[in-house]
């Protein structure tokens, strides 16, 4: 795949008010650097992120979306990871239909003191997204669709 030289992927992170957002704040407090093209929207719980918001982000030009999940620290429900996982998987189905590579959506648990793990997630995700290139030039075709077309 052709890559732009100075391409810095734009990432939208959905963080959670009580768990992952404090972890991300902590990264800042410790002056841990990550890409300045990472942006945040706080929600009450990662299992409450609507798939339509995720699709909106891609349609508007974000190269990747990262759900910083509550994981097992979720104060609302012990099944939070499972529920977040389901909405992520469902969103990926929708992305495929719209020709967006599902690898552009990622989820991982980020706890309220996960400063360094968070910055590592951003590093790795940025790298992966650089491989996929700018969303504007996205030419993803669902392998199943490809199979059907043959």
């Amino acid at each position: 795949m052709e890559q732009e030289k100075d391409f810095v992927p734009k990432i939208l992170v959905f963080s959670t008010d009580k768990i992952s957002d404090p972890g991300i704040d902590l990264a800042g407090q410790q002056h841990i650097h990550y890409s300045p093209s990472v942006y945040f929207i706080i929600v009450p719980c990662s299992a409450g992120v609507k798939p339509r918001w995720i699709l909106r982000a891609f349609n508007k030009g974000f190269d990747g979306v990262f759900v910083a999940a509550d994981g097992t620290d979720c104060p609302f429900s012990a099944d939070c990871s499972e529920k977040t996982g389901k909405l992520v998987a469902y969103s990926q189905e929708l992305m495929k239909k719209e020709g967006v590579n599902p690898a552009r959506l990622k989820m991982a648990a980020v706890c309220s003191v996960c400063a360094l793990p968070f910055s590592n997630h951003m590093k790795n995700f940025s790298k992966a997204l650089s491989g996929l290139g700018n969303i504007q030039s996205e030419k993803y075709i669902d392998p199943e669709e490809k199979e059907k077309q043959k």
Binding site: K50, F76, S77
Partner: peptide, 10 residues
């Protein structure tokens, strides 16, 4: 209701 919003995506 706690406003967690888990119901919203489903």
């Amino acid at each position: 209701c706690k406003g967690c919003g888990m119901c919203a995506p489903v």
